[in-house]
């Protein structure tokens, strides 16, 4: 074993792995993390904490990881190159490992222009592939990026991201190959809605033999409403949402009157609740269906559930997908 990671144990024992995302709060309240950790416990094998996702300031990933570890979860610290140079990255890698964090996801990071501090200066000293290599050399060679040696290495299970739906499509499997060559142990993909396109991507990945060198976890996410479906389909870069799912989300609330047509505040509230529940049920159902479909695709070793600010949905998703209980290894 390269680490003490539960995720590594689950994957190397041959189980279909489940990871889930835990979004840290936009404040200093540890209870938010604890509450989410308790809600998510047992639903997955390891839990990512995002690192300033969409370039919005939130609690540091390593800190929220430590809190969820105290709750008995196996955290995956996400680390982006956007905010740290190679000095800071290596310091955080040592720090995370010293705190008992066993997994790391290496990312370039969303550009500052998306976030709440668009006037900030980005770092991008190294890129995600170079970060993977750097962490691998720290772990396996006990060497810093500069070549200096260390006494106690960070024993981390190393992850990287892949977006099968970004362009150029033909290059994407080769970019994954670079991440594998750099030393990635596992991959978490962008959210899969377009299963046929993902299947084609995975075929090319398997043709390169990459599935034998790295564990690939397909990203999935529940859609919250028809508005969210439309937004993801048209506004989110790198996201490919087929019309079929937009239509299903619209159809989910068929027969429920529009809250705009109701004057009585109590009835309006009731209609809103009914709509929300109908949407959520359909969103979770679609997500569970996608999990079952990607599970059949050769080379897929697990799923990564990104229920962004909707962690309550994770239990139902894994339950409907038939992935409970999680294996004890």
């Amino acid at each position: 074993m390269k680490s003490d990671s539960n995720l590594e144990k689950v994957l190397s024992a041959g189980h279909f792995a489940v990871t889930a995302e835990l979004g840290p709060p936009k404040n200093a309240d540890p209870e938010v993390v604890r509450k989410k950790a308790r809600m998510l416990k047992g639903c997955a094998d390891a839990f990512n904490v995002t690192d300033g996702q969409t370039a919005v300031v939130r609690m540091a990933s390593w800190a929220a990881c430590l809190i969820q570890k105290e709750e008995g979860l196996d955290p995956i610290v996400q680390m982006t190159c956007r905010d740290r140079n190679r000095i800071a990255l290596q310091m955080d890698v040592l720090g995370a490992a010293a705190l008992g964090i066993n997994n790391i996801l290496c990312l370039s990071g969303d550009h500052m222009s998306f976030g709440n501090h668009p006037e900030s200066k980005g770092v991008y000293d190294i890129d995600s592939i170079q970060l993977v290599k750097m962490v691998k050399d720290m772990r396996d060679e006990k060497k810093f990026q500069c070549g200096e040696e260390m006494k106690v290495e960070p024993r981390l299970f190393i992850g990287a991201a892949a977006n099968p739906f970004a362009d150029p499509f033909d290059y994407r499997p080769y970019r994954l190959a670079k991440k594998v060559a750099a030393g990635a142990d596992f991959i978490q993909t962008q959210i899969v809605f377009n299963v046929p396109k993902f299947r084609e991507y995975m075929k090319r990945v398997c043709d390169l033999g990459l599935h034998e060198k790295v564990y690939i976890l397909a990203g999935v996410a529940p859609i919250k409403s028809s508005g969210a479906a439309r937004y993801m389909a048209s506004q989110v870069p790198g996201m490919d949402v087929p019309q079929e799912f937009v239509d299903r989300m619209v159809a989910a609330i068929k027969g429920i009157p529009s809250p705009k047509s109701i004057a009585d505040p109590e009835k309006k509230k009731e209609v809103r609740r009914r709509r929300r529940e109908a949407w959520q049920a359909e969103g979770i159902k679609i997500c569970a269906e996608i999990i079952q479909q990607v599970r059949e695709i050769p080379g897929v070793a697990g799923v990564h559930i990104m229920a962004i600010e909707w962690e309550e949905a994770v239990h139902e998703i894994v339950s409907q997908a038939g992935l409970l209980p999680r294996p004890t290894v």
């Binding site: 550009h111 977006n163 970004a166 362009d167 870069p237």
Partner: peptide
Amino acid sequence: SKSLLNGPCGGSQ
């Protein structure tokens, strides 16, 4: 935008 050296990030569309 990120001065990457190893190919396009996931935001290339």
